[in-house]
Design a protein around this nucleic acid. Structure first.
Lengths: 180, 180
DNA sequence: TTTTATTATGCAAACTATTGCATAACAATA
DNA sequence: TATTGTTATGCAATAGTTTGCATAATAAAA
């Protein structure tokens, strides 16, 4: 179970509310780990019950109040320990690949459409990635240690993304050879 | 929910028992969709209750009998319909990337070890992929339609895998610059 | 002033997945 | 003969995730 660890990782440097976490998870760490707000709120409560996170209510003007969570000493220790554990590779479960196993003359055009949509989505994402990389991670060797790790995650995202675009192009060419 | 669809996809051409499916899921389709035998048996029962799969007991000599499942007309229709639905991209949830966000001088060596292990695992997998590709998918344009789809899934696996190896090398170089 | 959007948090039900345990037929080995 | 390994299927408990619903404060627009 790693959602809790992903959340704690997001709280390493900043204290955040559930709402802010949910928003941030749509970008940055969320590129590598997604979660709905329901899950995040649930996990936050569990973690603060365990005393791995501290919570405090913040009064706001013009907005509803929020509950801000931050890492405790115990939380940092537990997270650091988790990093030392070993992880199994998890297969990327992707509907699209299962669907491709079902390719026939009737659905080739539909699948080509899905691949085109994925391609566009990936283009947008790569644009974001690249923007972040150029702005904050231009010279990886000179970064402070932790940022090097973040850079590597970003680099994998970029490489895999570019690879995916190339695959989409190959796939679209091959799918075009399937006559309806 | 796509485990049911992955199972039906595996049964498109051959009738298989739960045990055989579980074994096959460790290779082939299983590269893109993993499931434990418990899940598979459960899903098989659900699908045959829905009459999307037929079941029959096969008497064996020298081994316990097995229950073999096969696609029904209704199952094929439901699967074909599912292929036409649209799919959301699911974020690859990978512990390793979350761990990298926690990079520090204390865990750099450990993470390098994990990456090395992943690299070796991917090498073995690529070896398998390549063997399959050379043997069965050497000339994609001339394949029958459905096999073209399978080829594309394999091609993505190969491309992403090679990309991953390159990333591992980059990561190991950068991690080596982190002083303990 | 009613509606709509944003910020903010949560419950409950249903579904999906993992872990641990259990059984049993048969073969091969010690 | 007792143990171990392979084939074969399953239950139960727990954990994790998704979906649908619900609430409420405030701001901005219609």
């Amino acid at each position: 179970m790693a959602l809790s660890h992903a959340i704690m990782t997001a709280l390493l440097d900043d204290d955040l509310s559930g709402y802010e976490l949910a928003r941030d998870f749509e970008t940055s760490l969320g590129f590598f780990w997604q979660a709905s707000h329901q899950q995040i709120y649930l996990e936050l409560r569990k973690l603060s019950d365990k005393h791995w996170l501290s919570k405090r209510e913040v009064t706001q003007r013009g907005k509803p109040n929020k509950i801000v969570y931050g890492m405790t000493r115990a939380g940092r220790e537990a997270l650091a320990e988790w990093v030392f554990g070993s992880t199994r590779t998890q297969a990327a479960k992707d509907d699209l690949l299962v669907k491709l196993y079902n390719l026939d003359t009737g659905n080739a055009a539909h699948l080509a459409g899905e691949i085109t949509a994925r391609r566009e989505e990936m283009m947008r994402r790569l644009y974001l990635y690249e923007k972040i990389r150029r702005r904050h991670y231009d010279n990886p060797e000179t970064l402070p240690t932790r940022r090097k790790g973040v850079y590597l995650a970003l680099a994998l995202g970029i490489h895999q993304g570019e690879q995916f675009l190339a695959w989409c192009d190959e796939a679209l060419v091959l799918l075009a050879t399937v006559k309806a």
